[in-house]
Design a protein around this nucleic acid. Structure first.
Lengths: 346, 346
DNA sequence: TTGTACGCGTTATCAA
DNA sequence: TTGATAACGCGTACAA
């Protein structure tokens, strides 16, 4: 099995010094036309490429971005990665992916693995367990070691770094407003427990919309689901809870769900209870994934512009990495949501 | 901004040599208990970790796997990545992801970027354009440079390497058989153009099932859709084609689609034409994604065990990387499919 | 025009 | 018990 060819081998083969080869390949005018030609031809023949690792070691930068996300089998996160990849490639960076699986320890381990020189900076979204434990020491450690971090979507105030977030609260407010405008009087909210930052913000948006429209919130209309790890498997449990919600509140004529799965589940339950969508009950979800688009009826949702989030995160990180002055002025980019109206609302 | 601490700095600080520090940290018995303690304490305090890049350079292995897939916003591929990541992490490897976006040139460029020492081996699935152009030189080049490749799902006979594939033909045969057993007489096939290897194989399975059941295939029942790049956007075009298919063949009572999107689209069209599922027409798709599960009615599908594909690909690659003897006996692992019955069939 | 030496951070070998 | 040195592959400042 052949090994990749190096400058040294070329040098030996052509009986010149390593630096001559190096210079010849970089078309240095120091080297005679003659040797340049010879070296370049040889290099081409053997398909020479500089060893990235050696360059990384020398330059103390890997031109690689580390991305840590809670799960990859998820439209939102994979879309974000796509956005990151777009920008990274354009700017000459690679993307290395680590999955935390919503677990604190996996998040920590993954970061440690990558922080040891494999990458130049992180783009990440916090695991639910991390949000729950509120243990953020690993972020501060890496930042203190001079490695920049960009957090997106699931972020945390305690850490000073660049952030890209969606205007969750506004998006939710608009969505609920839409339901109210469409005539809904009793709007249920299906959300997560409060430790999930985005769930909390979206809940605030819901309350805000009610307040503006002078509708008194009813706690019985608010369902907080506790799925520390969203698994596709315990959907049945989710549906059961939603069914209870409907049964306890016969007057529900609108539902706002803080994610796609909850919204789809609500639709399923409504159908089971012989409620017509959108005639009897209108539904809006958050996150514009494939499910929303292809559901029957298709689901009105609040789009987060995931790809754009990824792109902006990458731009922010690379800008930081390539900034000459050490001026760390952390930014928080807020991405506005967009209400995509489909068939589940009037 | 601090930089990561190195052996050299520790050495200078403690006034010992670099190699003493190195040995002390690795608990070498050469070093006195005393200095060992001192060094280790200091290292711990400053949170020393060996620089991965330096180790990679020295060891000539990066402990990183390069994964090239056509797209990441896709249940199947993201599930495969999850499988790869599972095994990679367990065996001490990182995963670096490159997206080809179904483009030949991006595939080539991505591979070149990573092949220059960034990774130890590839796991990849071919882009549609590569399959169409049938230009596989980049694979042979990397293999010749001593970098192993594992291909999964979209593979090609022309390249000698480890492969993990699904028994597409059998899975399709079983699916169509199921439709026939369920009483379907006129089964339509919605597939891709033949250059997509899996599309071709699934078409073969369809024909095989018909043959076994002594049903003459009708070319008018076979729709080959040409989406060089599956984009969520031109679904309307797909639906139009499917609608034509239905209109030209009023007797269709079963549909086998080679992917989830086609199956969902078929369901949508059927609904539009006032056909009841599964009473009037039964539908089976390929690939068990979220769409199938949450569709209404939920879709019977052929599951490919994507996560397992990823896991086995990773095992195969790492086994190869860590094999001492240079015996290259390439394997092809065939994963059996599983028919997951839901509401779209009787 | 070409070559030597150095450094990036690490480990292994050999010398002190 | 500790330290100096070479090597991994590269680029570059400086020497020849």
């Amino acid at each position: 099995m052949k090994r990749k060819i190096t400058l040294k081998q070329i040098a030996r083969e052509l009986d010149v010094s390593i630096s001559t080869v190096s210079k010849a390949l970089r078309n240095s005018i120091e080297i005679s036309e003659d040797t340049r030609q010879k070296v370049q031809a040889f290099a081409k023949l053997y398909n020479y490429r500089p060893n990235n690792i050696a360059l990384s070691l020398k330059n103390r930068r890997t031109k690689t971005i580390g991305v840590i996300i809670p799960e990859i089998v998820h439209h939102f996160f994979s879309k974000v990665i796509q956005g990151i990849d777009n920008v990274a490639n354009k700017r000459g960076y690679n993307v290395i992916v680590g999955l935390s699986n919503e677990s604190f320890s996996k998040e920590v381990i993954n970061m440690q693995m990558l922080a040891n020189g494999s990458i130049d900076g992180f783009i990440l979204s916090l695991s639910k367990e991390t949000l729950l434990l509120q243990d953020y020491h690993h972020f501060n450690e890496t930042i203190n070691q001079g490695m920049p971090i960009v957090m997106f979507d699931r972020v945390v105030n305690e850490i000073l770094c660049d952030k890209v977030i969606v205007n969750d609260s506004n998006g939710s407010k608009d969505a609920v407003n839409k339901l109210i405008t469409n005539g809904c009087k009793h709007i249920a909210l299906i959300t997560t427990k409060d430790y999930v930052s985005v769930g909390k913000l979206r809940t605030q948006g819901y309350l805000k919309a009610l307040e503006i429209n002078k509708i008194a919130p009813e706690s019985s209309l608010i369902l907080k689901i506790d799925d520390k790890v969203v698994s596709e498997d315990h959907i049945e449990g989710i549906e059961l809870e939603i069914e209870k919600l409907f049964n306890n509140n016969k007057k529900i004529d609108g539902v706002f769900a803080v994610n796609e799965l909850y919204a789809i589940s609500a639709m399923k339950v409504a159908r089971k209870l012989n409620l017509n969508i959108p005639e009897d009950v209108q539904i809006i979800g958050f996150t514009d994934g494939v499910l929303s688009k292809h559901a029957n009826p298709s689901l009105t949702t609040v789009s987060q512009h995931a790809e754009s989030m990824g792109e902006q995160s990458a731009e922010l990180l690379i800008d930081n990495l390539e900034r000459e002055d050490e001026e760390d002025q952390y930014q928080t980019v807020v991405i506005e949501t967009e209400l995509i109206e489909r068939e589940s609302t009037k």
